[in-house]
Design a binder for these strands. Structure first.
Length: 854
RNA sequence: GGCCCCGUGGCGGAACUGGCAGACGCACGCGACUUAAAAUCGCGAGCCUUCGGGCGUGGGGGUUCGAGUCCCCCCGGGGCCACCA
């Protein structure tokens, strides 16, 4: 018998799907839509196992929903701007555009080899001016709407690369590429006003019911709503006030100092005449913000010649410090310190010998003896030592303090957010140019819309560090759209998260001359099911939620939330191997001997087996999907990706697991192509008489259709695979000679093929033909289950005595409780255990269980 | 340090709302086919057992007729955030 020719079969079906435009969709208001989207990849050049997993998950959903009758939009594109392209230019002299487009071509071929159900006509690359011109327009609209602004701000500056780094590109206080300690610098930067939506972005999380709780929680924490109060301290000898933010205004009477950030305007002003303060500030800004450093960093303060008057005690003052632990970015950049009830304030007070006055008395503590030693008391209690606040609990005291601050005009309660506006300027070449012009006379002028897009120049050199746009001989030079005088283009480009914040909308109308036609967006959006890595839980997913709101407010869209359903898949992991010298080894460089010892393939040197870790180049524990697809085919790779772990959990890639998937693919293939029984023709009605075995198989088919549908809906693909395997175990055991068994075999085979089609589509198409069908399976409807046929006539009732299983009885479905109890009490084991006594109580749950309490 | 999640056979994992723990698979063992091996097919299997049964979902306690599932404490692993005022 001919072996299953995987390569030939898969290529043939991929070509057929393309020929027939199976996955090309148009807006159809008469049909319910379903939009499935996987996070688009950065075109690094080759797909990796994480991609295979991500896109397989999405493809199962897309194919399943299509079979269910939905008009399914399932697109793919390229997140094509970014640093690696510039690195390639620097290291190898390839132009970023060439490098990127070659990578896209290679990866597109690889994805096509996986048999994914994309509408390739909608493919986009974000580095294409036909894409980024629209976001330049969006930016101008944001500018008009007050959602974008320019401000001087403190940024992470890499002194070697001469560029700003995003927070996530700073690792342990050092630039991720240069390794140089990152400095804080004050630069003019463009910002998007994400904080304008802070309240809504937080509140709307509750409505994202099909998002993982974990992601919602992460965004919740990231947005970081904090209820507190602003308090204005009068400064001695000055006209201005010092405003601080606190969440503990109940402890104001325990205040013993105020502290401001080294970047606070007051610090800057005083430093002008104080070289020592200048040096102190410079020192603070050199300090990295990495975990280890913060952990060990000493709390340092610099006493400035200013005192702050206590808002509730006129005439009483507090010393003011510039302190290295106060962040300009949070609150007001200034705090008051209450050492008794804040650990950090306590550390600072002990170091600078400041008073520690407890004002919150823990329950059951004695006010005469309670004292704070080296540990601040942060628990609940009764306020004391606090004049008019005495005797209140913490919450009441906060309310009263806020009221008093308001009446005396010294402050008010307020809400502060951890979320900060999104700085989008990057001093890089390979990004979307920010469409503004700097004019000596008119200032910052937006590029007029009819001059868009502002495209990147192609003749750039990467021979020296920094932004090639800045050095370009002519590109910068332009004329001011307002006054017509000489002016210069902005040389910063957008953060690449800008492109990914709206690409899902572009797919709705990927070739249109506007960003997207409103009717297309209204029909297709929101994305019904979005799938990607959890590493984007905050950044990309939060930016996209913000962007959608901003686009709505600028008239582009009707919706606020871009993704109504979200699944975050786990990582693909693999064992790690090390040579005797401690070098990492690739899986294909080692083998396991019969005695269980791992050795190198060449030379047979002993190999140490390491932990199972995320596939990464540095640990060399990667398996190239191309090799797997070449050896086993896409169906096997897909099946393994789905069958071993639920999507959100990490998946361990194992050779034996892939073999298992491969064996199953072949088993199904052989069972159907080599079936010795002559099957009745397609469409033969169910015979009246079925053997008991056949009856059971038919019932199992109906049950499995229900179970698999439910599993797919709930993203339990591993269970779905298990359920189909269970069914095939039954079907393949059917002899096919008894009454109605040949028909049942056909029915079983067809059910199997249709249920497996979203997971192993190529093989299923082939078998669908083998079974005599001519239509393309990808166009067929999902099988329907008859619920009445899916239910057994009898059920197995568990009989317990005192909660322990002692017998099982077969009974007609829906037997009465009395009948169940009667049967249960007849069981020999039950009689024996009752030993002549009457049961004290008997609980019966219909169709499930009887529990006899002896 | 704060917040959150997860601990089930040798392994990956099933068990939706409390109701027969271990589906399905991997690895393993035995058998069939074969001169032999591979492939394939069939069977077995949580642990202990005096073969009656006993013990079992990280450990301890609780609620319940009944707990992998709910509550409290502890241990172990992981994630996110973090001088956040």
């Amino acid at each position: 018998m001919a072996r299953y020719n995987v390569k030939e079969t898969e290529a043939r079906w991929q070509a057929r799907w393309a020929e027939h435009g199976c996955f090309e969709v148009e807006r159809d208001p008469g049909k319910p839509k379903y939009y499935v989207l996987e996070m688009f990849p950065y075109p690094s050049g080759r797909i990796h196992m994480g991609h295979v997993r991500n896109y397989t998950l999405g493809d199962v959903v897309a194919r399943y929903k299509k079979a269910q009758g939905f008009n399914v939009l399932h697109p793919m594109g390229w997140d094509a701007f970014g640093l690696p392209a510039e690195n390639a230019a620097i290291e190898r002299g390839v132009h970023p555009a060439k490098w990127t487009h070659e990578n896209i071509a290679a990866m597109r071929d690889q994805l096509k080899g996986m048999g994914l159900s994309y509408d390739w006509r909608r493919e986009i690359a974000t580095c294409d001016p036909s894409y980024y011109r629209h976001e330049q327009k969006m930016f101008l609209d944001f500018l008009k709407a007050g959602l974008a602004y320019r401000r001087e701000s403190w940024v992470n500056w890499d002194p070697v690369e001469n560029t700003v780094l995003a927070n996530e590109q700073v690792i342990d206080g050092k630039g991720w590429r240069s390794g140089a300690p990152v400095e804080k610098r004050k630069l003019d930067q463009w910002f998007l006003k994400i904080t304008h939506y802070a309240e809504d972005l937080l509140a709307a999380l509750d409505g994202l019911e099909r998002w993982p709780d974990k992601v919602r929680l992460m965004q919740h924490n990231w947005i970081g709503r904090s209820e507190g109060a602003r308090v204005r301290f009068k400064l001695t000898g000055r006209d201005d006030d010092l405003e601080v933010f606190t969440t503990r205004h109940d402890t104001l009477f325990g205040a013993s100092f105020c502290a401001i950030s080294p970047n606070h305007p007051l610090a800057g002003e005083l430093a002008e005449k104080d070289p020592a303060l200048q040096a102190f500030i410079a020192e603070c800004n050199r300090m990295s913000t990495s975990e280890a450093d913060i952990e060990s960093a000493e709390k340092l303060g610099y006493r400035i010649p200013v005192d702050a008057e206590h808002p509730f005690r006129p005439g009483s003052t507090l010393p003011v410090f510039v302190a290295n632990f106060v962040l300009m970015e949070y609150g007001t950049g200034a705090i008051f310190g209450c050492p008794a009830h804040d650990q950090r304030d306590l550390d600072f007070a002990r170091k600078y010998d400041l008073p520690v006055v407890p004002v919150v008395l823990p329950p059951d503590a004695d006010p005469a003896t309670f004292a704070v030693g080296s540990e601040a008391y942060v628990g609940p209690g009764t306020i004391y030592n606090s004049e008019f606040l005495d005797g209140r609990n913490v919450d009441d005291a906060k309310a009263e303090a806020a009221k008093r601050l308001e009446t005396s005009d010294r402050g008010s309660s307020t809400t502060t957010w951890r979320l900060r506006d999104w700085g989008v300027s990057r001093q890089r070449y390979w990004g979307c140019p920010i469409p503004v012009i700097h004019c000596g006379t008119c200032g910052v002028v937006p590029v007029p819309e009819d001059q868009l897009p502002v495209t990147l120049p192609e003749d750039v050199d990467f021979d020296s560090p920094g932004n090639p746009l800045e050095r370009h001989p002519t590109w910068r030079k332009t004329t001011c759209p307002t006054c017509g005088g000489d002016a210069q283009r902005e040389t910063d480009t957008f953060d690449t998260f800008f492109e990914s914040s709206w690409y899902f909308a572009r797919f709705a109308d990927a070739t249109g001359s506007t960003a997207f036609a409103r009717e297309a967006a209204d029909y297709w959006l929101a994305v019904d099911q979005y799938i990607g890595g959890v590493e984007h839980a905050v950044l990309h997913l939060l930016y996209a939620r913000f962007f959608t709101r901003a686009l709505r407010d600028c008239g582009y869209l009707a919706i606020a939330e871009p993704f109504s359903g979200l699944v975050t898949q786990g990582m693909v992991c693999h064992e790690t191997y090390r040579s005797p010298e401690g070098r990492w080894l690739y899986p294909n460089e080692v083998k396991k001997q019969a005695d269980g010892q791992w050795v190198t393939l060449e030379g047979g040197a002993p190999v140490t087996l390491g932990r199972v870790e995320k596939m990464s180049k540095s640990k060399r524990n990667t398996v190239d999907p191309a090799n797997i697809i070449d050896a086993y085919g896409a169906d096997t790779a897909r099946l393994f990706m789905l069958s071993d772990s639920p999507p959100e959990r990490d998946l361990e890639w194992t050779e034996s697991g892939v073999d298992g998937a491969w064996r199953y693919v072949n088993r199904v293939w052989r069972a159907i192509t080599e079936c010795p029984v002559a099957l009745p023709p397609v469409g033969t009605p169910k015979p009246d008489a079925l053997s008991p075995q056949a009856e059971q198989v038919v019932r199992a088919c109906h049950k499995t259709i229900l179970a698999v549908s439910d599993s797919i809906e709930r993203f339990r693909f591993n269970s779905a695979v298990a359920q189909v395997r269970e069914l095939t175990n039954l079907i393949f055991a059917l002899e096919g000679t008894g009454p109605g068994e040949a028909w049942t075999l056909r029915y079983g085979f067809e059910t199997t093929v249709r249920l497996l089609a979203p997971m192993t589509p190529h093989m299923c198409e082939e078998l669908w033909q083998t079974l005599g069908h001519t239509a393309i399976l990808a166009e067929e409807e999902w099988p329907e289950a008859d619920r009445s046929l899916a239910e057994d006539e009898t059920v197995t009732i568990a009989v317990q005595v005192n909660g322990k299983l002692r017998a099982t009885v077969e009974m007609a479905k829906d037997s009465t409780k009395d009948a169940m109890i009667e049967r249960a009490l007849e069981q020999p084991n039950v009689i024996k255990l009752l030993d002549g006594r009457d049961p004290r109580k008997v609980i019966a749950v219909p169709n499930k269980i009887v529990n006899v309490v002896a």
